[in-house]
Structures are given as structure tokens and as C-alpha cells.
Computed example of a mutant assay.
Amino acid sequence: MEQRIIHACGHEQAHDLTGFDSQQARKARWLKTTTCRDCFVAEKRAEEAAAAALSSAAISHLDLPLLTGTDRQISWASTIRTKRLAALTNLNSNADCYACLQVTDAKWWIDHRDLTDVDLMAAATQAADIQSATAARASITDMSRTA
């Protein structure tokens, strides 16, 4: 049954309430104490923006290389990298985070977003080692072609 509820924020919103009359009444009373969907979303976005600003400020001293990937990957990975590096630099020295600074593949950041801090640094070290070995092989190949 659809009911129009005036939320704590003052906005009115339609809700489909199901169940027995007592359950509907209880749900309606609870909904009146909450904010509407639009205000809830706006609050969450503001919280996320504030957290992103704090993370950006925490790593502003780092010289971050540009990420590679598609535009969507780069956008998402930038958010992940900023948040994770801010947490890492608060807990560790910048030298400990050096390997993370070397990873420029946006897909890597997305794929490793759920790792613990220790596992993330280990995976970044491994990725940096692979990246430097690949670069060394490429330069040797280039030198042999020019010779």
C-alpha cells in the first residue's frame, strides 16, 4: 500500500508499505524519523567529497605519476589510489609506499582495491619489479635493433 510520508528533512516521499497494518504503521513511524532518499544521497555524496578532499590533502606532497587506461578506469582508479595512499602514508613512511607510487596501470589499482595494506604494498612491489624488468628487456631489444 502506498503512503506519502513527510520525512525528518521536511520532504514528502511516496513509499510502498507492505505487511500487516501494525507493521505498516511501525515502518511509517520509522520513515518519519529518517531523511528522504534525495537528502540521503546528497549527504552521502557530501561525505564522500569531504573524505576525498582529506585524502588528496594527505598525499599532496607526493609526486603521483599519471595513470594509464580508459577514462573510466583512470577516474575510478584515481579515487582508489588517492584513498589507499593516504591511508598508507599515515601508517608508513613515504619510502614504504614507493612501490605503490610506481604502479601506473589503472586496472591494477581497481583489481587490487580490496587488499590489505600489507598485501597491497607487496603486490605493488611485485608489479614494480615486473614493470622494471619489462622496461629493461625493451631497452635491450631497442639497443640490439639499432646496432
Rank of each mutant, 00 (worst) to 15 (best):
C9E: 00
S55C: 11
R4T: 15
A86P: 01
T79I: 09
A124L: 05
V41P: 00
Q24C: 10
D96I: 11
W30S: 09
H112I: 04
L64G: 01
D119R: 06
D105H: 04
N90W: 13
Q73F: 05
E2K: 12
Q23W: 03
A128I: 06
L17A: 01
D63E: 12
L67R: 03
R29H: 13
R145F: 15
E48F: 09
L120A: 08
N92L: 13
P65D: 03
T125D: 14
H7Q: 00
H11Y: 05
H61L: 10
S75W: 09
K44R: 11
R137I: 06
T146N: 14
R72K: 07
I110G: 00
H112F: 10
T89L: 07
A133D: 08
A135L: 11
T116W: 03
M1Y: 15
Q13E: 10
T116M: 01
A123F: 10
Q102N: 10
H61T: 11
T146I: 12
H7A: 01
A57L: 08
T35D: 06
D111Y: 04
R81V: 09
S78W: 14
I6W: 00
L91Y: 15
C39T: 04
A87V: 14
L115K: 02
W109P: 00
T33Y: 13
H112M: 06
A138F: 15
N90R: 14
A53S: 05
T141Q: 07
L31D: 01
A124T: 02
I74P: 00
D63Q: 08
R45E: 12
R29K: 11
D21M: 06
A58I: 08
T141V: 12
Q126Y: 12
T116Y: 02
A28Q: 05
S60N: 09
E43T: 05
L66T: 15
I74Y: 02
G10V: 03
E2P: 06
A123K: 05
D111G: 03
L64F: 06
A106N: 05
H15D: 03
T125L: 12
W30D: 08
M121V: 10
A106T: 01
R4P: 03
Q3L: 09
A14V: 15
S56M: 10
H11F: 06
A14R: 05
Q23P: 01
S60R: 07
A8N: 01
T68I: 10
V118P: 03
G10D: 01
N94R: 04
T68C: 07
S78K: 04
D21G: 03
A138L: 13
A49R: 09
D129R: 08
D114F: 10
G10I: 02
A123G: 01
A138Q: 11
L31F: 08
F20S: 12
T34V: 08
Q13M: 05
R4G: 08
R113W: 14
Q24S: 07
S132M: 12
A57Q: 02
T18C: 04
K83M: 15
Q13T: 07
S78D: 05
D38R: 03
W109M: 00
W30T: 13
T146G: 15
Q23L: 06
R37V: 15
D129E: 14
L54I: 13
S78Q: 10
K32A: 14
I130E: 07
Q126N: 04
L88D: 00
